[in-house]
């Protein structure tokens, strides 16, 4: 569909931030379909940023750009720039394996490997070449504590990860990502498959973790964004419609479409 006028996006500049990501003119295609359109935005360090919007608005695709997970989808390609530290993440020469060690990810459905709890946590470290048992043991304890799973699993580290409950499995996946000491944590609707108690636990952990790392979370749940996010970005049909401090965006959205979405007129 052709439009003559580009709809206006409202991006409120965030003061006094160290941007961890600077996105410039990002377009992402699936084959011929444009899934993310002309997005330019900066995300602050050590804060929680929520990406919200209706299904199919491109928010998950956008999230997966930051650790190049879209590489695993054969027909996906991206143009523009995503600056992280001094690198352009989209540069095909970039070492994605190293990138993914710094930028961890948690998925919609808990996806522990069918191995022991211990092996799940050390997977990333072992792939990075860490072999010393003392180092691995320590990492397991620290990361499981960070994910508030240590007390429940310390006596059964050799048991299969699949014997854990859904909420525990998701916290194990969190621990597994934390074991690599990431600087950024990407979360793709991490609580949509969990019960309210497990959800609250994950949110609590994220609020704790944001003191040390940058968190970007895609969520379907607007209350969740309001509860935990410092900043919120609203996506609609592949475009970034509005971005700013969460409280401001929820209380006084500047774009009509944001207002409609937040008031539940579509979604």
């Amino acid at each position: 569909m052709l439009t003559l006028e580009k709809p206006k996006a409202s991006v409120t500049p965030i003061k006094k931030i160290n941007p961890v990501f600077q996105v410039k003119d990002l377009n992402i295609y699936y084959g011929d379909t444009l899934a993310v359109k002309d997005v330019s935005v900066q995300f602050p360090e050590r804060a929680i940023t929520a990406l919200i919007g209706p299904s199919g608005c491109g928010k998950s695709t956008f999230l997966r750009t930051f650790n190049r997970m879209n590489d695993l989808i054969p027909e996906a390609r991206a143009t523009g720039e995503v600056i992280y530290q001094e690198w352009n993440i989209l540069d095909p020469r970039l070492d994605v394996v190293a990138l993914r060690k710094e930028i961890g990810m948690l998925f919609q459905k808990p996806n522990p490997f069918p191995k022991s709890i211990y092996e799940n946590v050390v997977h990333g470290l072992k792939c990075a070449g860490v072999k010393k048992k003392a180092v691995l043991d320590e990492a397991v304890e620290i990361s499981l504590k960070q994910a508030d799973l240590w007390d429940e699993t310390r006596d059964r580290l050799t048991k299969s990860a699949l014997s854990l409950s859904g909420g525990q499995q998701q916290r194990l996946c969190l621990a597994r990502a934390l074991a690599l000491k990431p600087k950024v944590l990407l979360l793709d609707e991490p609580t949509s498959a969990l019960d309210p108690i497990s959800t609250a636990k994950i949110e609590e952990l994220l609020l704790e973790l944001m003191k040390e790392m940058t968190i970007i979370i895609v969520t379907h749940n607007m209350q969740q964004a309001a509860r935990i996010a410092d900043y919120t970005a609203f996506f609609f049909q592949g475009r970034l419609e509005e971005y700013g401090a969460t409280a401001a965006l929820f209380e006084a959205p500047k774009v009509e479409r944001t207002k409609q979405y937040l008031s539940g007129q579509f979604g």
Binding site: V97, R100, K101, G104, M105, F107, N111, F113, H123, G124
Partner: peptide, 22 residues
């Protein structure tokens, strides 16, 4: 399922490491 491949890749595993260990 693919989420196993994605989970491993997101932890910085190469394709062969994912094949071998997951």
């Amino acid at each position: 399922p693919n989420h196993q491949r994605h989970g491993s890749a997101a932890l910085g595993a190469t394709r062969w490491q994912t094949v071998k260990t997951v």
